[in-house]
Design a protein around this nucleic acid. Structure first.
Length: 497
RNA sequence: GGGCCGCUAGCUCAAUUGGCAGAGCAGCUGACUCUUAAUCAGCAGGUUACAGGUUCGAUUCCUGUGCGGCUCACCA
């Protein structure tokens, strides 16, 4: 008797043969549904509300389709659970309602099969909304057994590699990706309403710019030219600002050839927006309004649970300068230690790790990441960064070494990053050159200065406020997920041998 | 790439000091006309991730490999 996977497959294939022998097509082409499972339940409730609520009250027939996720056979009548994208509904199938062929077909139904049913809605004795099935049709025969009904599928490896099984077995996973979809729709709605234009810029770049991550390299055969998958959309979007699109945004995948972690994926979705004649204070307000709006629209509340914390996204968010934040949470005023050596020494005196290879900017970044960000649970705008950390950001008037830049942090996650865009072409060139000096060895050849971007700036870019939002991390925050893989449908995994 | 942890039936998990590898769900046979983790009786299902080693004997101890998780590094 079958139990091993192979035997189960074998047995189901025999069932297929048998059905075909009976003249039943196990994979028909279409099925007209009148309702989703939840619409059917809603209709039942509506009928009950309109007429005198009465147990066993029947309604107009509905037809729904979905996957069988449970079967409770009780002799001449059986209860099945059927699940579609909206949820699940119970079916009641009574042998006495069916002719001989249908009784045979019913015997060959398995958990996992996809069926369409037609029947009237009623409530069972226990109050469960149920379709009393008059007719049913096999829509797709399943040859694989489903994971256990109670615990679902929990092996992360299998969940990520075979996400379709995860989605069948674990309903809460489906909810996460529904939220993700609504978040992105909500962002578009918010920006479109403010007069932003959505654009698409190239994914294949001849020079990987706009961030400092290592790029993926590919090759175009006809052009015989190496190309890089974009690591940011920034430099192209700002070209469009030069061209006169005053408010633009792009939601797109960017690719960074770096380590994978619970907050880093080699490909992830980035929203970047640019608004002419605005500075970073305007962007601060816009982004907190946007995230508040999204959260309210998608979740119905701006108070969310993340891990053990409750986070209130209602603006205005707390604001603190990077200098004050590092002083408060790290105990160091980095302005008093203007050299890498001096700052490193101070950090070590406080028992902090300070890599000898790191320059001053990277040490400050280390302080931010390790000592400040994890403490920032409520949404917080950390602003005014050292110029050396931010080669594309504009100086703060009157403060030589500070740029107008901020990052918003919530739940310890970096949600976005924004600045007043540097539009002085001469200074931008100097900053790029400064940046190039830091690069050595293998990395060096991957980096070139984007000359065309500098030329664009020479034509004149209006003062501009730019924003970059990590969509995956935002979705993590809104769905209370601790790993970025939980919000990416098909996360990158090592190929199995 | 480093460190730690994990990998046992299709799924979720057991297995005492190193001593016959077990259960629930799923599957198969049967009973049952309001069940919902249905119930009841019975049956079947294993290269314990892989390759070595120690041992009379290894799921268990050791080494290596693979894959995954967490973490560190990298990611302005």
């Amino acid at each position: 008797m079958p139990s091993r996977l192979d035997d189960i497959n074998e047995q189901r294939k025999k069932t297929l043969q048998r059905l075909r022998g009976l003249g039943i097509n196990p994979y028909p082409n279409r099925y007209p549904q009148t309702h989703t499972t939840q619409q059917a339940i809603a209709q039942l409730e509506e009928t009950e509300a309109r007429e005198t609520p009465q147990r066993g009250k029947e309604t107009e027939p509905v037809s729904v389709a979905g996957r069988i996720t449970a079967m409770r056979k009780m002799g001449k009548s059986s209860f099945l659970d059927v699940r579609d994208v909206s949820g699940k509904i119970q079916l009641l199938l009574q042998n006495s309602n069916f002719n001989k062929d249908q009784q045979e077909l019913f015997k060959d139904l398995d958990i996992g099969d996809i069926i369409g049913v037609e029947g009237k809605l009623l409530r069972t004795r226990t109050g469960e909304p149920t379709i009393a099935v008059g007719e049913f049709t096999l829509l797709s025969k399943s040859l694989q057994p489903l994971p256990e009904k109670w615990h679902g599928l929990s092996d992360t490896d299998k969940r990520y590699r075979q996400r379709y099984v995860d989605l069948i077995a674990n309903n809460e996973v489906k909810e996460v990706f529904k939220v993700r979809s609504r978040v992105i729709a909500s962002i578009r709605q918010f920006l479109d309403k403010r007069g932003f234009i959505e654009v698409e810029t190239p994914v294949l770049h001849s020079s990987a710019g706009g961030a400092l991550a290592a790029p993926f390299v590919t090759h175009h055969n006809a052009l015989d030219q190496d190309l890089y998958l974009r690591i940011a959309t920034e430099l192209h979007l700002k070209r469009l600002i030069v061209g006169g699109f005053d408010k633009v945004y792009e939601i797109g995948r960017v690719f960074r050839n770096e380590g994978i972690s619970t907050t880093h994926s080699p490909e992830y979705t980035l929203l970047e927006s640019y608004e002419a004649y605005a500075d970073y204070t305007d962007v601060m307000e816009m982004q907190e309004q946007m995230i508040y709006h999204i959260c309210k629209q998608v979740l119905g509340t701006a108070e969310i649970k993340y891990g053990n914390n409750t986070i209130d996204l209602k603006p205005p968010w707390q604001r603190i300068t990077l200098r004050d934040a590092v002083k408060e949470y790290g105990g160091i005023d980095y302005v008093s230690y203007p050299t890498a050596a001096g700052l490193r020494e101070k950090m070590r005196s406080l028992n902090m790790e300070a890599d000898t290879n790191k320059n001053w900017a990277k040490l400050v970044d280390e302080l931010l990441k390790t000592y400040v960000r994890p403490k920032l649970i409520q949404p917080t705008i950390v602003f005014d960064y050292p110029a050396s950390m931010s080669p594309l950001a504009k100086n703060k008037p009157g403060k030589e070494r500070v740029v107008e830049r901020f990052q918003a942090v919530a739940g310890g996650l970096e949600i976005d990053n924004a600045y007043s865009e540097l539009n002085d072409p001469i200074e931008q060139r100097e900053r790029f050159q400064e940046q190039m000096k830091d690069r050595h060895g293998d990395e060096e050849e991957q980096w070139t200065i984007d000359e065309d971007y500098l030329t664009a700036l020479e034509y004149g870019m209006p003062p501009t406020g730019g924003l970059g939002v990590g969509i995956d991390r935002l979705v993590m925050l809104l769905t209370n997920q601790q790993s970025i893989r939980e919000v990416i449908l098909f996360p990158q995994l090592r190929e199995k041998p």
